[in-house]
């Protein structure tokens, strides 16, 4: 099963729509609640990152019998130093993002924590793509 969503930049009222829809699909498929939570937390963190940092993006979730692949591709500033961005507490988030309860430099580390595999492709000035895999 393939699910696709567009994510608009800066639209915090809609942030979480894709994650919520993926959560419902996984629950309907009978995936265990613990795994559903890991998928949803990882995807939601990444979705919030697109809203907070990029100029918009697209989320594609591929649900297979033994796991889920989620690709989150954005057009945006890219990440100049991925290693630094992976450090807990490092953030470039705006004041607005922090006022929404995010931007504490916990997103990428938390995605890594919940995913079985996380790969980041990024190019400064062009955008970032996250590849998340979680097995069921």
């Amino acid at each position: 099963m393939k699910l696709e969503y567009d994510v608009a930049a800066g639209d915090f009222t809609r942030a979480g729509f894709a994650s919520s829809s993926i959560k419902k699909a996984l629950k309907q498929l009978g995936v265990s609640p613990a795994v559903v939570k890991r998928v949803v937390i990882a995807v939601y963190e990444a979705e919030v990152n697109i809203v907070a940092h990029a100029n918009g993006g697209r989320i594609t979730a591929d649900i297979e019998p033994d796991g889920i692949n989620v690709v989150l591709a954005d057009t945006g500033p890219g990440i100049p130093d991925v290693e630094k961005a992976m450090q807990k507490g490092f953030s470039t988030a705006s004041k607005e993002v922090r006022e929404m309860g995010f931007g504490a430099g916990m997103g990428l580390p938390n995605i890594k924590e919940n995913a079985d595999s996380l790969r980041i492709e990024t190019e400064v000035g062009k955008g970032t793509t996250l590849y998340i895999y979680i097995k069921f």
Partner: peptide
């Protein structure tokens, strides 16, 4: 801090917060 809430492995706890928004 919602980022902090998202790191909690347990579920079905009570969340006490002063951050009142859709997020």
């Amino acid at each position: 801090l919602m980022s902090d809430v998202l790191t909690i492995k347990m579920d079905n706890f009570l969340l006490v917060t002063g951050l009142a928004n859709v997020q």
